[in-house]
């Protein structure tokens, strides 16, 4: 018997190099999330099918009304759809975390020598793959209907948006951990996503809105800056101050919500 306890103790000291272990565990959780996503392709619908639908819908339905023609509207709307798609998929990840929390598998993770934040961080890291898919799908769909952006900026643009969305995903994670059930997490995510994406300059120029709305769109909603900078990058191939401002804003969200989210997660599980 004593033999067994000793071997277990050795097993402990071998992997005691804290932070490295925690990071590798986080990536194992990311791997797990990815296996589950690809095994269940419906779960990728929001990043693979929705962007195509929105691209076509907005371009043909609103193109004429907002910009005079579909072609003229594409440079306006594609950046908007990019941001909207990525931010929407943030909402989904929060729900996944919540669903995991409600399952008994969480008690197994907790009974194992596993870093407390690894399950959350893992799911959010796996999201980067979803964001990349979403971004690529929007560009392909846009290209198919005649969108011709500044190609040199595409990669930088996708990376920028992945980072931006990733920062926001911590906010969504915080919200869905805080609510009572995964059903409530879904509706809470929708309640945040709707005003955030539509009350921005993503689809309609802010100048056409009443002044109260303009104030929200231009001064409060962080998405507006992100959309503007993506437009700038893709249309003119330049990086403007909006780009740096939205990076800064996203980083601020990250700095606030990583500790908040992890603390709440550890307390709730």
């Amino acid at each position: 018997m004593t033999e067994i306890s000793i071997s277990a103790a050795e097993f402990g000291s071998k992997e005691c190099s804290g932070i490295i272990t925690a990071i590798s565990q986080t990536f194992t959780f990311a791997h797990r999330a990815m296996i589950k996503a690809f095994r269940n392709p419906e779960s990728l619908a929001d990043v693979a099918v929705m962007p195509i639908m929105f691209t076509l819908l907005f371009a043909y339905l609103f193109g004429g009304a907002i910009s005079g023609s579909t072609d003229a509207y594409l440079p306006v709307v594609i950046p908007g759809i990019l941001i909207m798609t990525l931010v929407t998929s943030c909402g989904t990840s929060g729900i996944q975390i919540r669903e995991d929390m409600d399952k008994s598998i969480t008690s197994r993770f907790k009974s194992m020598p596993v870093a407390r934040f690894a399950p959350v961080a893992g799911i959010l890291i796996a999201d980067l793959v979803r964001f990349a898919i979403a971004g690529a799908v929007v560009f392909v769909a846009g290209y198919a209907i005649g969108y011709r952006p500044e190609w040199s900026m595409i990669l930088a643009c996708i990376l920028f948006m992945m980072f931006f969305a990733w920062c926001l995903s911590w906010l969504f994670a915080f919200v869905s951990i805080s609510v009572k059930s995964s059903a409530m997490a879904t509706s809470a995510a929708m309640m945040i996503l709707f005003p955030l994406t539509f009350l921005s300059n993503a689809f309609v120029p802010a100048e056409t809105m009443p002044s109260v709305l303009q104030f929200f769109v231009n001064s409060i909603n962080p998405l507006t800056k992100a959309v503007s900078s993506v437009r700038e990058m893709l249309t003119y191939g330049t990086i403007d101050t909006d780009f740096w401002l939205s990076l800064l804003g996203a980083a601020a969200i990250l700095a606030v919500f990583i500790p908040l989210t992890l603390r709440r997660y550890m307390r709730k599980t």
Binding site: S5, A8, A9, F11, G12, I35, R39, S104, I105
Partner: peptide
């Protein structure tokens, strides 16, 4: 954390991943 290395827990409800 030391305790967690010495135990294995099988809860009342299956704690494994359905999707895998």
């Amino acid at each position: 954390n030391k305790v967690r290395r010495l135990i294995g827990l099988t809860g009342q409800f299956a704690s494994i991943d359905e999707g895998m």
